[in-house]
């Protein structure tokens, strides 16, 4: 009966015809989705690089190279060095400084070295984990935001239905279709964010474990060096 009801239901038409709150929700979700994908790719690149650099450093370190030479190299190219190299550099620098001071016991030297390494480790971990909280937020909240848009759109569709005498499915169908787009967008934003968050937290955990064990092993090596010199 109404010619407007048989209009086209294309994606853009539906979005443009949606009510303002639903459109705002869609805009918000689009922004969240864009940002989360952006962070996903940033994290992907930086984590890949961190893994690669850490692998090569470990290979070099356990390959039996000269620690002094390694320190020189890492200090020279600090900008491009990886997380573990930073820890190594901080620890070794602190160790050398403490060793130059007279009458310091072995425990004090090793503890100072470990504290320096731990501080750098925390900073590196913090940098690795940046943006991850945003992914977690998008992953948990955007389905609700999309649901809100859908509920609002369906409410409006049914309100329009109350003013007509004969209710047909064709009168609510476009409203419900446009409302459901909001849920679809929310899920589209949430699913990659959740997957990315889980995956990156796992990767970062493994990297952190490697860094921690390196710290312990490096402390042992330094301790051995000190005791062997002292003897």
């Amino acid at each position: 009966m109404n010619p407007d009801l048989s209009q086209d239901l294309s994606l853009f038409h539906l979005i443009l015809n949606a009510s303002i709150p639903v459109q705002l929700v869609m805009l918000l979700l689009l922004g969240a989705s864009l940002m989360s994908w952006w962070f996903i790719f940033i994290k992907m690149f930086s984590l890949k690089r961190a893994l690669r650099v850490t692998d090569s450093f470990e290979r070099e370190f356990w390959g039996g190279g000269d620690i002094n030479a390694m320190y020189q190299r890492v200090a020279a190219e600090r900008e491009s060095a990886g997380e573990m190299e930073h820890i190594f550099e901080a620890g070794f620098r602190e160790f050398m400084k403490l060793r130059q001071q007279p009458r310091l016991s072995l425990n004090v030297i090793i503890d100072g070295t470990r504290r320096a390494m731990r501080a750098t480790y925390q900073r590196e971990l913090d940098s690795l984990e940046s943006h991850l909280s945003f992914l977690a937020t998008v992953g948990s909240v955007s389905p609700y935001v999309g649901l809100f848009g859908t509920v609002w759109g369906i409410m409006i569709a049914f309100m329009g239905l109350s003013s007509v005498a004969q209710a047909t499915l064709a009168q609510v169908a476009p409203g419900i279709a446009e409302a459901l787009i909001a849920t679809a967008m929310g899920l589209f934003a949430a699913i990659p964010a959740v997957v990315g968050y889980n995956r990156y937290t796992h990767d970062i955990d493994r990297l952190a474990n490697r860094m921690e064990s390196f710290m312990e092993e490096f402390s042992n090596i330094l301790q051995r060096q000190v005791t062997s010199r002292a003897d």
């Binding site: 864009l34 994908w37 940033i42 900008e79 320096a116």
Partner: peptide, 18 residues
């Protein structure tokens, strides 16, 4: 002390990919 070095992430590439 050696200052913390923040590495510039390849943001433009990531944005384009998003």
């Amino acid at each position: 002390d050696a200052r913390f070095v923040s590495r510039p992430a390849p943001t433009f590439v990531a944005g384009a990919m998003a």
